[in-house]
């Protein structure tokens, strides 16, 4: 049953994503992509539990590298997006 729940969430999120992103103007497509990079770093919260588990060394290494990589995405993605968006000025 839990699989069906997750599938339901997935389906709703995809439709919501389509509706929201359709409204993003072409002029902001580059920040949209770098922002998407940042959001995809959400894997971080899945990796934390493995990185903090000392019982299994291999899983801990894999988890920690994953935390490292996902943090690059989160921090790099949000910062560069902010840098770009700050440049978009009105008349």
């Amino acid at each position: 049953m839990s699989f069906i729940y997750l599938l339901m969430i997935l389906m709703l999120a995809i439709f919501l994503g389509f509706e929201l992103i359709r409204k993003v103007p072409a002029t902001l497509h580059t920040p949209l992509m770098s922002g998407a990079n940042a959001v995809s770093g959400i894997t971080l919260i899945g990796a934390i539990a493995y990185s903090g588990n000392e019982n299994l060394l291999l899983a801990q290494i894999l988890g920690s590298v994953s935390v490292f990589l996902a943090t690059i995405n989160v921090v790099g993605g949000y910062m560069v997006t902010d840098r770009m968006l700050a440049m978009f000025k009105s008349k």
Binding site: I48, S51, F68, T71, I72, N73, V75, G76, V80, R83
Partner: peptide
């Protein structure tokens, strides 16, 4: 997520997050 009960030790997590942030911030700048 850091309050998760399954986390037994924080050293690795913290090192990984700090290193990742440094690399990310460096590239973004």
């Amino acid at each position: 997520t850091l309050t998760d009960q399954n986390i037994l030790a924080y050293e690795w997590i913290i090192v990984a997050i700090i290193a990742g942030s440094a690399v990310g911030a460096f590239i973004a700048k």
